[in-house]
Design a protein around this nucleic acid. Structure first.
Lengths: 196, 196
DNA sequence: CGTTGCATGTAAGGTGTTACATGATTAC
DNA sequence: GTAATCATGTAACACCTTACATGCAACG
Protein backbone atom coordinates (compact mmCIF):
# COMPACT_ATOMS: atom_id res chain seq x y z
CA UNK A 1 0.00 0.00 0.00
CA UNK A 2 1.41 3.41 -0.93
CA UNK A 3 2.08 5.61 2.03
CA UNK A 4 -0.64 8.17 1.33
CA UNK A 5 -0.95 10.85 3.95
CA UNK A 6 1.55 10.31 6.72
CA UNK A 7 -1.47 10.87 8.98
CA UNK A 8 -1.94 14.25 10.65
CA UNK A 9 1.44 15.71 9.66
CA UNK A 10 1.53 17.80 12.80
CA UNK A 11 4.72 19.48 11.70
CA UNK A 12 3.88 22.35 9.47
CA UNK A 13 0.13 22.21 9.94
CA UNK A 14 -1.62 23.98 12.77
CA UNK A 15 -1.13 22.62 16.26
CA UNK A 16 -2.63 19.23 17.02
CA UNK A 17 -1.83 19.28 20.69
CA UNK A 18 -4.36 20.17 23.30
CA UNK A 19 -1.76 22.35 24.98
CA UNK A 20 -1.35 24.66 22.03
CA UNK A 21 -5.10 24.99 21.83
CA UNK A 22 -5.34 25.63 25.54
CA UNK A 23 -2.89 28.52 25.27
CA UNK A 24 -4.75 29.85 22.28
CA UNK A 25 -7.90 29.47 24.36
CA UNK A 26 -6.46 31.62 27.13
CA UNK A 27 -5.94 34.35 24.55
CA UNK A 28 -9.38 33.86 23.02
CA UNK A 29 -10.98 35.77 25.89
CA UNK A 30 -9.69 38.79 24.04
CA UNK A 31 -7.01 40.33 26.21
CA UNK A 32 -3.40 40.96 25.29
CA UNK A 33 -1.22 38.95 27.61
CA UNK A 34 2.48 38.35 28.20
CA UNK A 35 3.93 34.86 28.65
CA UNK A 36 4.17 35.57 32.34
CA UNK A 37 0.54 36.67 32.56
CA UNK A 38 -0.49 33.57 30.70
CA UNK A 39 1.22 31.34 33.22
CA UNK A 40 -0.53 33.00 36.16
CA UNK A 41 -3.87 32.82 34.41
CA UNK A 42 -3.30 29.18 33.56
CA UNK A 43 -2.57 28.42 37.22
CA UNK A 44 -5.98 29.76 38.19
CA UNK A 45 -8.12 28.51 35.35
CA UNK A 46 -6.69 25.78 33.15
CA UNK A 47 -5.09 24.11 36.15
CA UNK A 48 -8.50 23.22 37.53
CA UNK A 49 -9.38 20.78 34.79
CA UNK A 50 -6.38 20.48 32.58
CA UNK A 51 -2.94 21.21 33.91
CA UNK A 52 -0.64 24.15 33.91
CA UNK A 53 2.16 24.05 31.36
CA UNK A 54 5.65 25.12 32.40
CA UNK A 55 6.68 28.71 31.70
CA UNK A 56 9.19 27.60 29.15
CA UNK A 57 6.59 25.65 27.28
CA UNK A 58 4.26 28.59 27.15
CA UNK A 59 6.99 30.68 25.53
CA UNK A 60 7.77 27.91 23.05
CA UNK A 61 4.10 27.45 22.24
CA UNK A 62 3.64 31.19 21.72
CA UNK A 63 6.50 31.32 19.27
CA UNK A 64 5.05 28.41 17.36
CA UNK A 65 1.57 29.90 17.31
CA UNK A 66 3.00 33.19 16.09
CA UNK A 67 4.93 31.52 13.29
CA UNK A 68 1.64 29.94 12.21
CA UNK A 69 -0.09 33.31 12.27
CA UNK A 70 -2.56 32.27 14.95
CA UNK A 71 -1.33 34.92 17.38
CA UNK A 72 0.52 38.22 16.97
CA UNK A 73 2.81 39.98 19.38
CA UNK A 74 4.03 43.49 20.00
CA UNK A 75 6.36 45.09 22.48
CA UNK A 76 4.56 47.09 25.08
CA UNK A 77 5.70 50.71 25.06
CA UNK A 78 5.86 52.17 28.49
CA UNK A 79 8.53 54.63 29.43
CA UNK A 80 8.89 53.75 33.10
CA UNK A 81 8.47 49.98 32.92
CA UNK A 82 10.67 47.37 31.39
CA UNK A 83 9.44 46.07 28.06
CA UNK A 84 7.16 43.09 27.81
CA UNK A 85 6.02 41.18 24.76
CA UNK A 86 2.25 41.04 24.58
CA UNK A 87 0.41 38.39 22.61
CA UNK A 88 -3.05 38.52 21.08
CA UNK A 89 -5.11 36.04 19.12
CA UNK A 90 -5.66 36.72 15.41
CA UNK A 91 -8.79 36.12 13.35
CA UNK A 92 -7.08 33.09 11.88
CA UNK A 93 -6.36 31.88 15.37
CA UNK A 94 -9.95 32.26 16.41
CA UNK A 95 -11.17 30.47 13.30
CA UNK A 96 -8.70 27.66 13.73
CA UNK A 97 -9.56 27.18 17.40
CA UNK A 98 -13.25 27.23 16.71
CA UNK A 99 -12.81 24.58 14.06
CA UNK A 100 -10.59 22.43 16.23
CA UNK A 101 -13.06 22.50 19.11
CA UNK A 102 -15.92 21.29 16.97
CA UNK A 103 -14.11 18.75 14.83
CA UNK A 104 -11.57 17.00 17.01
CA UNK A 105 -12.92 13.96 18.88
CA UNK A 106 -13.07 14.49 22.63
CA UNK A 107 -10.57 12.30 24.47
CA UNK A 108 -11.61 10.59 27.65
CA UNK A 109 -10.22 12.48 30.64
CA UNK A 110 -6.73 11.49 31.63
CA UNK A 111 -6.16 11.16 35.31
CA UNK A 112 -2.83 10.55 37.02
CA UNK A 113 -3.45 10.16 40.71
CA UNK A 114 -0.26 9.30 42.58
CA UNK A 115 -2.13 9.01 45.87
CA UNK A 116 -4.46 6.29 44.66
CA UNK A 117 -1.49 4.53 43.13
CA UNK A 118 -0.03 4.31 46.61
CA UNK A 119 -3.21 2.92 48.10
CA UNK A 120 -3.33 0.37 45.30
CA UNK A 121 0.14 -0.80 46.33
CA UNK A 122 -0.72 -0.50 49.99
CA UNK A 123 0.40 -4.03 50.79
CA UNK A 124 3.95 -2.79 50.37
CA UNK A 125 3.49 0.05 52.82
CA UNK A 126 3.22 0.62 56.51
CA UNK A 127 -0.49 1.28 57.21
CA UNK A 128 0.14 4.34 59.36
CA UNK A 129 2.37 5.97 56.79
CA UNK A 130 -0.24 5.31 54.14
CA UNK A 131 -3.05 6.74 56.23
CA UNK A 132 -1.03 9.84 57.05
CA UNK A 133 -0.35 10.37 53.35
CA UNK A 134 -4.01 10.06 52.45
CA UNK A 135 -4.97 12.53 55.18
CA UNK A 136 -2.49 15.07 53.94
CA UNK A 137 -3.74 14.54 50.44
CA UNK A 138 -7.29 15.09 51.55
CA UNK A 139 -6.29 18.37 53.19
CA UNK A 140 -4.59 19.58 50.04
CA UNK A 141 -7.71 18.82 48.04
CA UNK A 142 -9.72 20.76 50.58
CA UNK A 143 -7.36 23.72 50.23
CA UNK A 144 -7.74 23.62 46.50
CA UNK A 145 -11.50 23.50 46.87
CA UNK A 146 -11.42 26.62 48.98
CA UNK A 147 -9.18 28.43 46.54
CA UNK A 148 -11.56 27.47 43.76
CA UNK A 149 -14.48 28.93 45.70
CA UNK A 150 -12.59 32.19 46.11
CA UNK A 151 -11.77 32.26 42.42
CA UNK A 152 -15.42 31.81 41.63
CA UNK A 153 -16.37 34.77 43.75
CA UNK A 154 -13.93 36.97 41.86
CA UNK A 155 -15.23 36.08 38.41
CA UNK A 156 -18.96 35.70 39.09
CA UNK A 157 -20.88 38.07 36.89
CA UNK A 158 -17.95 39.14 34.71
CA UNK A 159 -19.02 39.81 31.19
CA UNK A 160 -18.20 37.20 28.56
CA UNK A 161 -17.22 34.77 31.28
CA UNK A 162 -20.44 32.79 31.32
CA UNK A 163 -18.81 29.56 30.19
CA UNK A 164 -15.84 30.06 32.47
CA UNK A 165 -18.25 30.36 35.35
CA UNK A 166 -20.02 27.14 34.40
CA UNK A 167 -16.62 25.46 34.42
CA UNK A 168 -15.63 26.84 37.78
CA UNK A 169 -18.87 25.55 39.22
CA UNK A 170 -18.03 22.18 37.72
CA UNK A 171 -14.59 22.38 39.35
CA UNK A 172 -16.07 23.17 42.75
CA UNK A 173 -18.28 20.12 42.59
CA UNK A 174 -15.37 18.06 41.32
CA UNK A 175 -13.07 18.96 44.18
CA UNK A 176 -15.84 18.68 46.76
CA UNK A 177 -16.49 15.15 45.49
CA UNK A 178 -12.78 14.40 45.68
CA UNK A 179 -12.61 15.46 49.31
CA UNK A 180 -15.64 13.36 50.16
CA UNK A 181 -14.22 10.40 48.29
CA UNK A 182 -10.96 10.72 50.20
CA UNK A 183 -12.85 10.60 53.47
CA UNK A 184 -14.58 7.41 52.40
CA UNK A 185 -11.23 6.03 51.29
CA UNK A 186 -9.86 6.69 54.77
CA UNK A 187 -12.80 4.81 56.26
CA UNK A 188 -12.18 1.83 53.98
CA UNK A 189 -8.52 1.82 54.94
CA UNK A 190 -9.38 1.93 58.63
CA UNK A 191 -11.74 -1.01 58.12
CA UNK A 192 -8.89 -3.03 56.60
CA UNK A 193 -6.98 -2.61 59.87
CA UNK A 194 -9.78 -3.76 62.14
CA UNK A 195 -10.60 -7.31 61.05
CA UNK A 196 -14.05 -8.64 61.78
CA UNK B 1 28.00 28.81 44.44
CA UNK B 2 29.48 25.44 43.39
CA UNK B 3 27.02 23.24 41.62
CA UNK B 4 26.69 20.61 44.35
CA UNK B 5 24.29 17.78 43.60
CA UNK B 6 22.77 18.15 40.16
CA UNK B 7 19.54 17.27 41.94
CA UNK B 8 18.03 13.79 41.52
CA UNK B 9 20.36 12.48 38.80
CA UNK B 10 17.63 10.26 37.36
CA UNK B 11 20.03 8.74 34.87
CA UNK B 12 21.78 5.75 36.33
CA UNK B 13 19.76 5.50 39.52
CA UNK B 14 16.57 3.51 39.83
CA UNK B 15 13.51 4.89 38.04
CA UNK B 16 12.11 8.17 39.26
CA UNK B 17 9.09 8.13 37.05
CA UNK B 18 5.71 7.14 38.33
CA UNK B 19 5.22 5.03 35.22
CA UNK B 20 8.16 2.76 35.90
CA UNK B 21 6.89 2.30 39.41
CA UNK B 22 3.39 1.62 38.19
CA UNK B 23 4.64 -1.19 35.96
CA UNK B 24 6.71 -2.54 38.82
CA UNK B 25 3.57 -2.30 40.91
CA UNK B 26 1.61 -4.43 38.45
CA UNK B 27 4.24 -7.11 38.90
CA UNK B 28 4.32 -6.71 42.68
CA UNK B 29 1.11 -8.70 43.00
CA UNK B 30 3.36 -11.67 42.44
CA UNK B 31 2.44 -13.12 39.09
CA UNK B 32 4.69 -13.64 36.10
CA UNK B 33 3.37 -11.59 33.24
CA UNK B 34 4.25 -10.87 29.62
CA UNK B 35 4.32 -7.37 28.19
CA UNK B 36 1.03 -8.09 26.53
CA UNK B 37 -0.56 -9.30 29.77
CA UNK B 38 0.69 -6.22 31.51
CA UNK B 39 -1.02 -3.97 29.00
CA UNK B 40 -4.36 -5.72 29.44
CA UNK B 41 -4.03 -5.61 33.20
CA UNK B 42 -3.12 -1.95 33.08
CA UNK B 43 -6.22 -1.24 31.02
CA UNK B 44 -8.40 -2.69 33.74
CA UNK B 45 -6.65 -1.48 36.86
CA UNK B 46 -4.12 1.32 36.47
CA UNK B 47 -6.29 2.99 33.87
CA UNK B 48 -8.91 3.77 36.49
CA UNK B 49 -6.78 6.22 38.42
CA UNK B 50 -3.57 6.61 36.50
CA UNK B 51 -3.47 6.00 32.78
CA UNK B 52 -2.51 3.12 30.63
CA UNK B 53 0.92 3.35 29.04
CA UNK B 54 1.32 2.40 25.38
CA UNK B 55 2.46 -1.16 24.62
CA UNK B 56 5.75 0.09 23.32
CA UNK B 57 6.42 1.96 26.51
CA UNK B 58 5.70 -1.07 28.61
CA UNK B 59 8.30 -3.04 26.67
CA UNK B 60 10.82 -0.23 26.99
CA UNK B 61 10.13 0.14 30.69
CA UNK B 62 10.50 -3.61 31.26
CA UNK B 63 13.88 -3.62 29.58
CA UNK B 64 15.01 -0.73 31.71
CA UNK B 65 13.74 -2.33 34.90
CA UNK B 66 15.49 -5.55 33.98
CA UNK B 67 18.79 -3.80 33.34
CA UNK B 68 18.47 -2.32 36.84
CA UNK B 69 17.80 -5.74 38.33
CA UNK B 70 14.34 -4.81 39.56
CA UNK B 71 12.67 -7.44 37.41
CA UNK B 72 13.82 -10.68 35.78
CA UNK B 73 12.54 -12.39 32.70
CA UNK B 74 12.49 -15.88 31.25
CA UNK B 75 11.13 -17.44 28.10
CA UNK B 76 8.07 -19.52 28.72
CA UNK B 77 8.62 -23.09 27.60
CA UNK B 78 5.53 -24.61 26.13
CA UNK B 79 5.74 -27.01 23.24
CA UNK B 80 2.48 -26.18 21.52
CA UNK B 81 2.44 -22.41 22.06
CA UNK B 82 4.61 -19.71 20.66
CA UNK B 83 7.20 -18.38 23.08
CA UNK B 84 6.47 -15.45 25.34
CA UNK B 85 8.81 -13.57 27.61
CA UNK B 86 7.52 -13.54 31.16
CA UNK B 87 8.58 -10.92 33.69
CA UNK B 88 8.67 -11.14 37.48
CA UNK B 89 9.62 -8.70 40.19
CA UNK B 90 12.85 -9.37 42.12
CA UNK B 91 13.50 -8.84 45.82
CA UNK B 92 15.47 -5.74 44.90
CA UNK B 93 12.49 -4.54 42.90
CA UNK B 94 10.15 -5.05 45.81
CA UNK B 95 12.51 -3.26 48.19
CA UNK B 96 12.99 -0.38 45.82
CA UNK B 97 9.28 0.04 45.20
CA UNK B 98 8.49 -0.13 48.88
CA UNK B 99 11.04 2.56 49.57
CA UNK B 100 9.85 4.76 46.74
CA UNK B 101 6.24 4.59 47.88
CA UNK B 102 7.07 5.76 51.38
CA UNK B 103 9.70 8.37 50.59
CA UNK B 104 8.63 10.16 47.45
CA UNK B 105 6.32 13.16 48.01
CA UNK B 106 2.83 12.57 46.67
CA UNK B 107 2.05 14.80 43.69
CA UNK B 108 -1.32 16.42 43.43
CA UNK B 109 -3.48 14.52 40.95
CA UNK B 110 -3.02 15.59 37.37
CA UNK B 111 -6.17 15.88 35.36
CA UNK B 112 -6.45 16.54 31.64
CA UNK B 113 -10.09 16.86 30.79
CA UNK B 114 -10.58 17.76 27.13
CA UNK B 115 -14.35 17.94 27.56
CA UNK B 116 -14.23 20.63 30.22
CA UNK B 117 -11.69 22.49 28.10
CA UNK B 118 -14.35 22.67 25.40
CA UNK B 119 -16.98 23.97 27.75
CA UNK B 120 -14.54 26.56 28.99
CA UNK B 121 -14.16 27.79 25.41
CA UNK B 122 -17.86 27.39 24.77
CA UNK B 123 -18.27 30.94 23.46
CA UNK B 124 -16.45 29.79 20.34
CA UNK B 125 -18.80 26.87 19.78
CA UNK B 126 -22.29 26.26 18.57
CA UNK B 127 -24.36 25.51 21.70
CA UNK B 128 -26.03 22.42 20.24
CA UNK B 129 -22.73 20.89 19.18
CA UNK B 130 -21.32 21.54 22.62
CA UNK B 131 -24.31 20.01 24.38
CA UNK B 132 -24.19 16.96 22.15
CA UNK B 133 -20.51 16.51 22.96
CA UNK B 134 -21.12 16.76 26.69
CA UNK B 135 -23.94 14.21 26.47
CA UNK B 136 -21.77 11.76 24.62
CA UNK B 137 -19.04 12.31 27.16
CA UNK B 138 -21.47 11.67 29.99
CA UNK B 139 -22.50 8.40 28.38
CA UNK B 140 -18.92 7.27 28.02
CA UNK B 141 -18.31 7.98 31.70
CA UNK B 142 -21.41 5.98 32.51
CA UNK B 143 -20.11 3.08 30.44
CA UNK B 144 -16.81 3.23 32.25
CA UNK B 145 -18.63 3.26 35.58
CA UNK B 146 -20.49 0.11 34.62
CA UNK B 147 -17.33 -1.62 33.47
CA UNK B 148 -15.72 -0.68 36.77
CA UNK B 149 -18.62 -2.23 38.67
CA UNK B 150 -18.18 -5.46 36.73
CA UNK B 151 -14.46 -5.45 37.41
CA UNK B 152 -15.18 -5.08 41.08
CA UNK B 153 -17.44 -8.10 41.10
CA UNK B 154 -14.68 -10.20 39.54
CA UNK B 155 -12.04 -9.31 42.09
CA UNK B 156 -14.12 -9.04 45.27
CA UNK B 157 -12.80 -11.42 47.84
CA UNK B 158 -9.64 -12.39 45.98
CA UNK B 159 -6.79 -13.05 48.33
CA UNK B 160 -4.13 -10.35 48.64
CA UNK B 161 -6.31 -7.93 46.73
CA UNK B 162 -7.63 -6.04 49.72
CA UNK B 163 -6.04 -2.74 48.72
CA UNK B 164 -6.96 -3.20 45.09
CA UNK B 165 -10.55 -3.61 46.18
CA UNK B 166 -10.44 -0.42 48.22
CA UNK B 167 -9.17 1.34 45.13
CA UNK B 168 -11.84 -0.05 42.89
CA UNK B 169 -14.46 1.13 45.33
CA UNK B 170 -12.83 4.54 45.19
CA UNK B 171 -12.97 4.42 41.39
CA UNK B 172 -16.66 3.53 41.41
CA UNK B 173 -17.44 6.55 43.55
CA UNK B 174 -15.18 8.69 41.39
CA UNK B 175 -16.90 7.80 38.14
CA UNK B 176 -20.35 7.99 39.69
CA UNK B 177 -19.51 11.52 40.84
CA UNK B 178 -18.24 12.35 37.36
CA UNK B 179 -21.49 11.22 35.76
CA UNK B 180 -23.51 13.25 38.24
CA UNK B 181 -21.29 16.26 37.72
CA UNK B 182 -21.76 15.98 33.96
CA UNK B 183 -25.51 16.00 34.42
CA UNK B 184 -25.28 19.18 36.46
CA UNK B 185 -22.99 20.65 33.84
CA UNK B 186 -25.63 19.95 31.22
CA UNK B 187 -28.20 21.75 33.36
CA UNK B 188 -25.95 24.77 33.72
CA UNK B 189 -25.39 24.84 29.97
CA UNK B 190 -29.11 24.65 29.33
CA UNK B 191 -29.63 27.55 31.73
CA UNK B 192 -27.19 29.66 29.72
CA UNK B 193 -29.44 29.20 26.69
CA UNK B 194 -32.64 30.25 28.38
CA UNK B 195 -32.04 33.79 29.64
CA UNK B 196 -34.08 35.02 32.59
C1' DC C 1 21.96 46.90 49.12
C1' DG C 2 19.78 42.37 49.36
C1' DT C 3 15.74 39.76 48.54
C1' DT C 4 11.60 38.94 46.18
C1' DG C 5 8.85 39.19 42.20
C1' DC C 6 8.58 40.33 37.28
C1' DA C 7 10.05 38.89 32.79
C1' DT C 8 12.05 36.24 28.84
C1' DG C 9 14.20 32.95 27.01
C1' DT C 10 17.77 28.56 25.65
C1' DA C 11 19.65 23.86 26.18
C1' DA C 12 19.48 19.30 27.41
C1' DG C 13 17.21 15.46 28.38
C1' DG C 14 13.52 12.50 29.93
C1' DT C 15 8.78 10.81 28.85
C1' DG C 16 5.51 8.90 25.99
C1' DT C 17 3.10 8.26 21.45
C1' DT C 18 2.37 6.68 16.69
C1' DA C 19 3.80 4.31 12.94
C1' DC C 20 6.11 0.57 11.24
C1' DA C 21 7.74 -4.29 10.91
C1' DT C 22 6.89 -9.07 11.72
C1' DG C 23 4.86 -13.24 12.42
C1' DA C 24 2.04 -17.07 14.94
C1' DT C 25 -2.49 -18.72 16.54
C1' DT C 26 -7.49 -18.94 16.84
C1' DA C 27 -12.18 -18.50 15.39
C1' DC C 28 -15.42 -18.03 11.80
C1' DG D 1 -8.78 -18.80 3.85
C1' DT D 2 -9.17 -14.64 6.11
C1' DA D 3 -9.89 -11.75 9.88
C1' DA D 4 -9.02 -10.93 14.61
C1' DT D 5 -6.18 -11.49 18.36
C1' DC D 6 -1.86 -12.67 20.40
C1' DA D 7 2.82 -11.16 20.74
C1' DT D 8 7.24 -8.49 20.53
C1' DG D 9 9.77 -5.11 19.33
C1' DT D 10 12.28 -0.63 16.77
C1' DA D 11 12.47 4.10 14.98
C1' DA D 12 11.10 8.57 14.67
C1' DC D 13 9.34 12.20 16.69
C1' DA D 14 6.26 15.14 19.58
C1' DC D 15 5.70 16.75 24.14
C1' DC D 16 7.05 18.67 28.33
C1' DT D 17 10.14 19.59 32.32
C1' DT D 18 14.32 21.03 34.74
C1' DA D 19 18.15 23.55 34.95
C1' DC D 20 20.42 27.36 33.47
C1' DA D 21 21.25 32.27 32.04
C1' DT D 22 19.99 36.98 32.36
C1' DG D 23 18.51 41.20 34.05
C1' DC D 24 15.08 44.95 35.75
C1' DA D 25 11.98 46.80 39.40
C1' DA D 26 10.15 47.38 43.91
C1' DC D 27 10.34 46.99 48.75
C1' DG D 28 12.42 46.94 53.16
Amino acid sequence: MPSGQPSPPTTGGPPTSATANAVLGLLSFGRELSGYDLKKWADHSLQLFFWSPAMSQIYTELQRLESLGLVTSRLEEKADARPRRLYAITDDGRTWLSHWLASEPVDLPMLKNAMVLRVWLGDLMDPDTLTAMVREHRDRLQARLERTREDRRTITGWASMAHAEVVIRWAERYYAAEVENSDLLLEDLAALETPG
